[in-house]
Each structure stands twice: as structure tokens, then as C-alpha cells.
Amino acid sequence: MPWINACATDDIDEEDVIRFDHGDTSYALYHSPDGDFFCTAGFCTHEKVHLADGLVMDYLIECPKHNGQFDYRTGEARRAPVCVNLRTFPVKVEAGRVMVDLP
């Protein structure tokens, strides 16, 4: 499948997250403190709460409902109550646009 144009790099502040919907699926896009961009599944694996409403700290996204944390670079569940990893998706930047390789 081709790369999907998700947003402009300027749409996401450093150390922040935004929601991105494509088709019938929702994703979360992140801008790391070192300037890289990442994409994960949009909903927490513990309860179906959107991660774009959560708090980004360094390389962690904290779920807004129960404060579970994931490393958004790898999807690794890092703090209870989350115990199932997030799915991650490849990202590249082209001409100021964040491009995501979706299934």
C-alpha cells in the first residue's frame, strides 16, 4: 500500500500527539523531543480511550483514563494497567509532510 499523507510536520508540536483517522481506523501521531515522528494505533490497549487525549513525556504516551504508559517508538507497554503493546507503523517525512505506511 502507498504511503499515506497524514499531516504537516508543523501540525504536531514537539513532545506532543495528534489524532489521525484513515478509513475506519484511528491512529496517534507523535513528534519526539529529538525531532522524529512516530505513529501508533490510536486507542489504548487497556480500554478503548484515544491516546491523542493523553500526555506525552519524552518518548512515553500516558493514557488519559488510567495513566498507563507506552513507549510510542516501539509500542511497548511501560506502566500498569496496560500490559498489551501498541501496534506501531513506519513513518517518514517528505517535503514537510508526515507520511505513514499503513496496512
Rank of each mutant, 00 (worst) to 15 (best):
I4N: 03
R87C: 11
D101F: 05
D34Q: 09
N85E: 13
C39Y: 01
E14I: 11
D10W: 10
D16F: 04
I18R: 02
G75S: 04
P2N: 09
W3L: 08
N67I: 15
G75T: 10
H66K: 11
H22A: 13
I61C: 11
Y27N: 00
D21E: 14
D24E: 13
T88S: 01
A80Y: 12
D21I: 10
D36Q: 09
D36R: 06
G35A: 08
R97D: 09
C39A: 10
G75L: 06
M1H: 08
E62M: 15
F43C: 05
C7M: 06
F37E: 03
I4H: 07
P103L: 09
Y59M: 13
R19L: 10
D36T: 02
Y59N: 12
V84A: 14
A6Y: 05
P90K: 05
Q69W: 08
P2F: 02
W3M: 08
V100K: 02
D13C: 06
A52C: 14
V98D: 01
Y59G: 00
A52E: 03
R79N: 10
P103S: 08
R73N: 04
D101S: 07
E14H: 10
P90S: 00
I18H: 03
H50E: 14
V49W: 08
F20M: 03
A80G: 13
Y30C: 02
S32R: 08
D21N: 13
G23M: 07
Y72C: 04
Y27A: 07
G35R: 04
Y59T: 07
A95D: 15
L55C: 14
P64E: 10
F38V: 00
L51N: 01
V93H: 04
V84S: 15
M99H: 02
R19W: 07
D21F: 01
S26F: 02
V17Q: 03
T40K: 04
Y72H: 08
D16W: 04
P103W: 04
